[in-house]
Design a protein around this nucleic acid. Sequence first.
DNA 1: CGGCCGTGCTTGTGATCACAATGGCGCCAT
DNA 2: ATGGCGCCATTGTGATCACAAGCACGGCCG
Lengths: 231, 231
Amino acid sequence: MQDRRSNPPVATPSSARGADGPPAHERIYRDLRSRIMHGELMPGEHLTLRGLAEEYGLSMTPVREAVRRLSTEGALALTATGRITTPELDAARIEELAVLRSLIEPELAARALPRAHFALIDRMNAINSSIAEAAVKGDACRYIRHNLEFHRALYLRAQAPAMLAVIETVWLQLGPTMRRLYEDLPRQVPPRAHRVMLAALKAGDEPALRLAVKTDVTRGLRHLLGQEGGG
Amino acid sequence: MQDRRSNPPVATPSSARGADGPPAHERIYRDLRSRIMHGELMPGEHLTLRGLAEEYGLSMTPVREAVRRLSTEGALALTATGRITTPELDAARIEELAVLRSLIEPELAARALPRAHFALIDRMNAINSSIAEAAVKGDACRYIRHNLEFHRALYLRAQAPAMLAVIETVWLQLGPTMRRLYEDLPRQVPPRAHRVMLAALKAGDEPALRLAVKTDVTRGLRHLLGQEGGG
DNA sequence: CGGCCGTGCTTGTGATCACAATGGCGCCAT
DNA sequence: ATGGCGCCATTGTGATCACAAGCACGGCCG
């Protein structure tokens, strides 16, 4: 790229701030985080600070902060020498993360249950259709994105930001691996457990909801572990 | 501080690197994280990048990364304008974090149970004594530190790094609040549930262990919520 | 005497630079 | 032809600087 400034010593930071919204490092962080969580990056992919900085039209400083935050969350892995890659999870790690999902998500669902209006169920139904659509089109990224959106729409009603943050971190860590899964595997049936969840939601049946959520998560686990040898 | 270098343009980074161990930003991160998790900082305390930089004898750059990572983990709170404080948790947030503990820690304990040698139980007994000792001396920091050490010693045997990382993040968020709790409250009995945990461990009784862990965590919750109005 | 506003110090943000270590690649010797 | 070695480009690390937005304190006016 050309020099964006003619006077040698410094550049004007104000010129880069098109909008006064969130600061640059926050924007990179959110964008990268979303891309990783939704499986837009394959496991083992290499990233560089300068590459990302150029991609986002910024200097290394904010990029570094974003990358560091993401590596703390397990969304990115740093080699011993500090190189940045998207993580490759082994079977044990995947199992752990799936168990965390099965521990936390039923609780979130149960907390959301009393607050689940009809509008929410309608919305979840719509998302469910989008999932099926993405599955038919073989769009792995969209499939993952809508799948998580389905869960998040429900959990947002739980009024439990701390628990939601934790579970999103788990999703984040699973992001690249889920990408590989849905890339390789023939598309799974449009989610079956999701329909059970919706039924339990309508019926106000908490135990059934908890079980359905756990089943949904565990089903994904089996697939992830089943193909782990082939990766 | 005086200028550490006479030539004006740049300083030599090599002079600051006394040891070639972990990089500076990692050291600050770990140190700050430990201090926060173990309640060495009160809730609502103010920190500044330049202040921390001076305290650690570094520039703002690595400090910024450490602070950002910690704020991502919920160990530090940033005001809307970016000011850094140690978080003040409300009752709902505390309850959430306690529930997360009660969901995850029994699972970790159960996974550690088959691997719990005599040496581990001995060590946990010793830590338990240290807890009682700190309680008598009214040393809140040491009390918190040994209490977490007690749990961590057990959970390390679970061979579940991802789950351990998550629960440590929860501890981290509770750090300053626990500090305030143990500061105000008259010292609680030297942990009762810990003895039950040890008994269940010796007996190899998983359900009893799960219950004991959950009880230990929930007991802390009640105290935290009970005094929440007075903070 | 109290509330409002302006000014200045404080603080976070982002860019740039110098440096060291690493990883990759080609070259040379066997 | 292949394996080892050394050089160069790449990449992360940390320091420093310029800038803008705050917050606080003090002065001014009501």
